[in-house]
């Protein structure tokens, strides 16, 4: 394996190499495997301790599957995921269970991810029941501490999820994720189901908790403006591939990949004067099916700058600057740059 592309400055806490998740397509009477949905098709990146990596892309690009495969909530088809010194992808079930406390997840839908028949106290205490041997009183104290940390009043401990608003439910989900003192949290669209005025509350909370507990986040979102706010570095996914990864400010100031460019250009600005004059790149067509990805570059069917070579050969991932890598034929890297991923 070559040197990691776009490594962050500090030693990585999380490192993903050539991760693939292919879901089989079964058909016919005998449910024979007739193909595969290449949801994640060879992604590599690192996340430094204490860093937030934003993972953006449109629906179906494989960003959530990447997050789930990293925690082995779905089984990866190939590749490795290391968190700290532990290889997550090859850990046998018993060992994996012991690793679970260090890696947690905050889910998108706080309505669906909380058991409606359990009180807030029970929901937040469940990971403690599973993974620790605390006494009842210790657990109670720990839960009340966690509720305090996420801004929920201790008076609510006996209530059920339905009594809470969306933002408060997401706080419960965050408290549950924090219960075992994790080092790494995958936040899968944690604010997508929330109202605008509540989103900022939850994002601020995530940032406060990161500073307080030294957490490392993978922040999966389709909301580019929120990712720009919370992430230190950003990876852009398209059809199972990372097409560009870069420090936040570089990516938003000067996107290199034509898809990143189009994606940023598609986000409307909260400024009517700017909107009236802004140049937009309007992509034509839809995202191809990951069951039948195009030959060559995955983006070649919609790319406004497509060249003949793009339709035949998949571009290699090229490191263009420290911490920055792009997979595009039109972007040339420094001559002797190490490349990772493709082929």
């Amino acid at each position: 394996m070559a040197e990691p592309s776009a490594a962050p400055a500090a030693a990585p806490l999380v490192s993903v190499r050539d991760l693939k998740v292919h879901f089989p397509i079964l058909s016919g009477v005998f449910r024979r495997r007739t193909g595969a949905v290449r949801a994640v098709d060879g992604v590599s990146f690192d996340i430094a301790a204490g860093e937030t990596l934003g993972l953006v892309g449109e629906s179906g690009c494989g960003k959530s599957t990447t997050g789930r495969a990293m925690l082995r909530l779905v089984e990866p088809t190939a590749g490795t995921v290391r968190i700290g010194d532990d290889d997550i992808t090859t850990a046998p079930p018993g060992h994996l269970r012991r690793l679970r406390p260090a890696m947690q997840m905050v889910f998108q839908d706080p309505q669906a991810s909380l058991n409606p028949r359990m009180t807030v106290m029970d929901i937040i205490a469940e990971p403690l029941d599973e993974h620790t041997r605390l006494s009842r009183a210790e657990k109670r104290d720990k839960v009340l501490d966690l509720m305090d940390a996420v801004g929920l009043s201790a008076d609510f401990a006996g209530r059920y999820p339905h009594a809470f608003s969306g933002g408060q439910r997401q706080r419960i989900g965050i408290a549950r994720a924090l219960a075992l003192n994790p080092r790494f949290i995958v936040c899968d669209e944690p604010i997508a189901a929330l109202d605008v005025s509540i989103q900022a509350q939850v994002v601020n909370l995530l940032e406060d908790l990161q500073a307080r507990f030294g957490l490392t986040y993978l922040f999966i979102s389709h909301d580019l403006s929120m990712v720009r706010h919370i992430a230190d570095r950003v990876a852009v996914m398209y059809l199972g591939h990372i097409v560009e990864i870069a420090p936040r400010d570089d990516l938003f100031a000067a996107p290199l990949h034509p898809y990143t460019e189009a994606l940023l250009s598609a986000v409307p600005e909260h400024d009517p004067a700017a909107e009236a004059t802004r140049q937009r790149i309007i992509l034509t067509g839809d995202v191809p099916s990951p069951a039948r990805p195009p030959a060559g570059c995955a983006f070649s069917t919609r790319c406004p700058k497509v060249q003949p070579v793009c339709r035949t050969t998949a571009p290699a991932t090229v490191v263009t600057a420290p911490g920055r890598a792009v997979a595009c034929h039109l972007v040339a890297g420094p001559a002797a740059a190490g490349s990772v991923g493709a082929s």
Binding site: G167, V196, S197, A200, S225, R228, L264
Partner: peptide, 19 residues
């Protein structure tokens, strides 16, 4: 409360408290 993808980036989002 809404961040932008262009223009200056605030360090802290201004949230509206309560519901």
């Amino acid at each position: 409360t809404v961040p932008s993808v262009r223009g200056p980036r605030a360090d802290k989002l201004q949230a509206i408290d309560g519901q």
